[in-house]
Design a binder for these strands. Structure first.
Lengths: 194, 194
DNA sequence: TCAGAAACAGAATAGCTATTCTGATTAAGT
DNA sequence: ACTTAATCAGAATAGCTATTCTGTTTCTGA
């Protein structure tokens, strides 16, 4: 009996992810979202709730996408230090691509919302832990291959990689060239080598 | 002939720094600033210009304060790896103190303003380069003391420390405990050891 | 003491924001 | 074809924002 929805929630959410990732929460207006997605206010509020709830769903989809695109490879057997390096190289390439202003939904959430929003802070902790854990598993695998020093604490090192990746995004946003970001990745990974 | 100003611009600017550092640019309203400083709108606009210009001056004062408080020690002869470690430990302690929501003006600037504001992006690049340079000088000194591996590129490593410090702030903001941040610092510094 | 220039507190303005509301439109089931 | 309930585009609302304006107060120099 009812009229069909004129948009696909998942692809719309994908466009919302891009907006939030590049401009953050408060600098992205619902009007921006209406324009970018082509979805009416009615549709947005009806299917996603308010802006805060929409953001939370965007954050989850962002993390899932990043997980599948980047971190899944670390969980497979035989993961090497080069797999880890490739994740960083792709992130650096992303940050230095001239077409868009890429960002990071994790950092925006941490800086804009986490201190005041306990629930979102919990979500973010869970997502970041998952990211560090993936790094740790990859490091442990690389350690088994003799690529990572035996004295390296892979749990701590996984968290360190997460931390440095965020720093890379911050530096990329302030316009540092690819060369600089590449050198940082090298420096970080050199410290882990066997 | 003129009436005397009823506030000290430098201390007012210091309070503005704290506000911007904890909440960022757009989440800090001029009303917040009026309340926190006790300075009238008239006084703020008259002495600092508009919000954007006030922010720029706050950023410069923030960097200068951080330089004097933390990084100056690295430029003195005999700087050691422990001096570098102490800077990170103090930053971690700051992020984990329960009384306030400490933040980082550099990260806020990078995420909120740098992509759209070319001038501010240039300012931020200069300030971050100064920070990395201080780390590099400290590392070189520590290298001379035999505390840092001979194969370590201190220029790249200095930028890596800057990057990781930003990551620490991001993790601190999302509520990770001191233990986690300490482990990251250890992991990072272990990779530099001789 | 007094003139005057600058600083003050706070009202006024203009514009943007998230959210809700409204009347028109759509498409399915009967 | 008609009913019906949900969707749509966009207007309306309420509240916040940065900035400017206004009338008053204050202090300094003559």
């Amino acid at each position: 009996m009812n009229r069909a929805r004129a948009f696909d929630p998942s692809t719309a959410l994908g466009q919302v992810v891009d907006l939030f990732a590049s401009k953050g929460y408060s600098e992205t207006s619902m009007e921006d979202i209406v324009q970018a997605t082509g979805v009416s206010r009615y549709g947005l509020y009806g299917t996603f709730g308010n802006k805060r709830e929409l953001f939370e769903q965007a954050l989850e989809q962002y993390a899932e996408g990043m997980g599948k695109r980047s971190f899944l490879r670390l969980l497979e057997p035989g993961a090497s230090l080069d797999h880890i390096r490739s994740i960083f190289e792709e992130r650096v390439a992303d940050m230095c691509s001239p077409d868009q202003n890429k960002g990071c939904l994790f950092i925006h959430t941490a800086m804009e919302l986490a201190p005041q929003d306990e629930e979102l802070r919990g979500v973010l902790q869970r997502l970041m832990k998952r990211m560090s854990k993936a790094f740790s598993i990859g490091l442990d695998s690389a350690k088994g291959r003799g690529e990572v020093g035996k004295d390296v604490d892979v749990d701590a090192a996984g968290e360190m990689l997460t931390s440095t990746m965020f720093g890379l995004v911050v530096l990329g946003r302030t316009g540092f060239p690819k060369k600089t970001l590449d050198a940082i990745v090298d420096s970080m990974l050199n410290g882990l080598k066997a």
